[in-house]
């Protein structure tokens, strides 16, 4: 890992230009795992002091600056309860407090790490990405995008809806990356189901959620079917952490547990 120069831009526009001009220029989004993931950086573009650290609560959304750290999110009063505190919970599952103090939400999104807990949780919140140049884009669409583009992520906006949510992760130790992770939200009968570390990058199980969204009220049987739908539509694979077969088995168990938690109250489960 080597960084040739560091740029401290005075404005987001200057930062954007630096990144657009050079494909080896990298916005410095925290630094967690930098020594393992990046080999040669021509310019590290520092984004400190440009106002991207803030988390703002508007009426309809929570606007999270790209440079908000995972601890900022985990300790934020509104995010701590939004969707059952699911996003905050996911942030708390990333390594330890020292990493959570430097790793940022923007870095988690743009890193596009397949193991990311944060991406999975964000997907289930129906988050939208805000860029310096590009039009805002749903995170789900961004992950599915066909053509890549170089832009500066400035923030992530999360709809403030009254609903339940839960994040689940299985990893070998608490400091390991997920063998599988998933996040489920239920906003008045509208479900979002995201599964990550399959081991591919997080994806929504759209068919499963769409079919559930048609049904009121949802029964245990419907949840079983949603699990089967999700397993059918998502791809799973093998790596050193787990085989495809085991990942599917875990996804089946965890997804049903998660769906029950966001659907029924304690007694009904």
């Amino acid at each position: 890992m080597r960084i040739e120069t560091v740029l401290k831009p005075a404005s987001l526009e200057e930062a954007y230009k630096a990144i657009a001009a050079d494909k080896n220029a990298v916005p410095f989004a925290g630094g967690a795992w930098i020594k393992l993931t990046l080999k040669e950086i021509s310019t590290a573009v520092l984004l400190d002091g440009l106002g991207l650290e803030k988390i703002k609560v508007t009426g309809a959304t929570v606007e999270i600056g790209a440079l908000a750290t995972l601890s900022d999110v985990a300790s934020h009063p509104v995010l701590g309860s939004l969707y059952g505190g699911m996003l905050a919970d996911a942030c708390r599952h990333v390594m330890g407090i020292n990493v959570q103090n430097v790793a940022t939400l923007g870095g988690s999104v743009m890193g596009g790490y397949a193991f990311s807990d944060v991406l999975t949780a964000l997907l289930a919140t129906d988050a939208t990405l805000r860029f310096q140049k590009h039009e805002p884009m749903k995170l789900a669409d961004y992950l599915d995008r066909k053509a890549s583009f170089r832009d500066l992520l400035v923030g992530i906006s999360i709809p403030q809806r009254n609903g339940r949510g839960v994040f689940k992760k299985i990893s070998r130790t608490r400091l390991d990356f997920a063998v599988i992770n998933l996040a489920v939200t239920n906003v008045n009968g509208l479900y979002l189901i995201a599964v990550g570390a399959r081991p591919g990058v997080a994806r929504l199980a759209k068919i499963a959620a769409d079919r559930l969204n048609e049904i009121h009220p949802v029964s245990r049987f419907d949840l079983d079917r949603a699990v089967s739908d999700a397993l059918a539509e998502l791809d799973f694979g093998s790596n050193n952490r787990a085989s495809e077969e085991y990942r599917r088995a875990l996804a089946r168990v965890l997804l049903l547990r998660a769906l029950k938690e966001v659907t029924f109250d304690d007694r009904q489960r």
Binding site: R172, T173, F177
Partner: peptide, 8 residues
């Protein structure tokens, strides 16, 4: 130590 996991 990201991929070789000792107990925490």
């Amino acid at each position: 130590l990201l991929s070789y996991k000792i107990p925490t």
